[in-house]
Amino acid sequence: MAAAQGRFSDGADGMNSAETDSVPPAFRQAVDALQSASLRPEMEIDPTKAPRKLAPYAYALEAAVVENDNDLADGRLVLLHDPAGHDAWQGTFRLVTLVRAELEPEMAADPLLPEVCWSWLTGALQGRGLSYGEASGTVTRAGSHYFGGLSERKPATQIEIRASWTPREGLGGVPDAGAHLAAWCDLLCQIAGLPPVGPPDAGVVSLPQRRGPRTH
């Protein structure tokens, strides 16, 4: 992946429409905001192939949090747009995400872990003053124990957040997609165990964990 900080690699533009000239101006503006966002230096981000069946227009990104050449967390963010609106979204835009990271094994037993991880998502959005609605999702934790030729590996616990939310639209019917991307990167960095770059949000609960590199 190419280092982010507002810079995206040259390659597939991440859209699901081959006819880019027909893209609605509101969607194009939202995509431009994603591509010009200023992000933390630990983020590596690239456009990726967007889904074709979720909405008439879609743009997708994949990202990883990298520190000292270690991949600490990764995820995928998809911006959907339906100019006709969508009843379930209560709007014309929708953001869909998958975020994954590995925790220390003892964290799996914490009964508050799912609630805390969900608070990281909502807290990231609230921490940047973003207005959103219709948020929904799941938090899944799974433990792995290794045997045979892999028995030297330590047990691992993976946390996975799948979520979607409707970004409230501003002037011209365009949401602040760049700010939502920055909030999503805040979530990735928090689940990776990195300290916040600004004052932590008072409504977000932290867990005292430190993860090593992800194993694949």
Results as ranks from 00 to 15, higher is better:
G148A: 09
L103P: 01
A101H: 14
T48I: 01
P199F: 09
G11W: 01
L112N: 15
G11C: 07
P41C: 03
R76V: 00
A37N: 04
D32A: 13
N16W: 05
V65F: 01
T138C: 08
P114L: 03
P196V: 09
A3V: 13
A37I: 07
D32F: 01
V66P: 03
S164A: 13
G75M: 01
C185L: 04
D201Y: 04
R214L: 06
V65M: 00
K154S: 15
F27G: 03
G143Y: 03
R7P: 03
Q190K: 13
T215D: 15
G173E: 08
V205D: 14
P47S: 05
M43F: 10
G6H: 10
F27H: 06
H81F: 06
P200K: 04
G11R: 04
L95E: 07
S22Y: 06
E115I: 09
I191T: 10
A58M: 04
L188C: 04
H86L: 06
V66K: 01
A2W: 09
L181Q: 03
L72Y: 05
S206L: 03
A64Q: 05
R52H: 10
Q5H: 07
Y57S: 06
A163I: 03
Q126A: 15
V23W: 09
S206V: 05
D74F: 01
W118C: 02
G123W: 02
Q190N: 13
A64F: 00
Y57A: 04
A192K: 04
E42L: 09
A109M: 07
E102G: 12
G148P: 11
A64W: 00
R210S: 14
A26L: 08
D176Q: 14
R214E: 13
D21K: 13
V204K: 09
L130C: 09
V205N: 10
P47F: 02
D176L: 05
A124H: 06
A84Q: 15
P111H: 02
D110E: 10
S206T: 15
D21H: 12
L113N: 11
E169V: 10
V204Y: 02
V204R: 14
G178Q: 10
C185H: 12
H145S: 12
V65A: 06
P114F: 05
A63W: 00
T122I: 13
P195Y: 08
V204P: 12
D21L: 14
V23M: 10
D87R: 13
L34S: 06
L113Q: 10
C185F: 07
P195N: 04
S164R: 15
W118L: 12
D110L: 12
W118S: 05
T97F: 00
A84S: 15
Q29Y: 08
Y57D: 09
D87P: 01
C117S: 11
Q35H: 10
L61A: 00
V96K: 08
S151D: 14
G212A: 10
G148D: 14
L150D: 02
P175I: 12
T48Q: 06
R128D: 13
D87V: 07
T48H: 04
W89P: 11
D21E: 11
W184T: 03
G85H: 02
L39M: 07
A2N: 14
F93N: 04
G172R: 13
D71F: 05
A109C: 01
L187G: 00
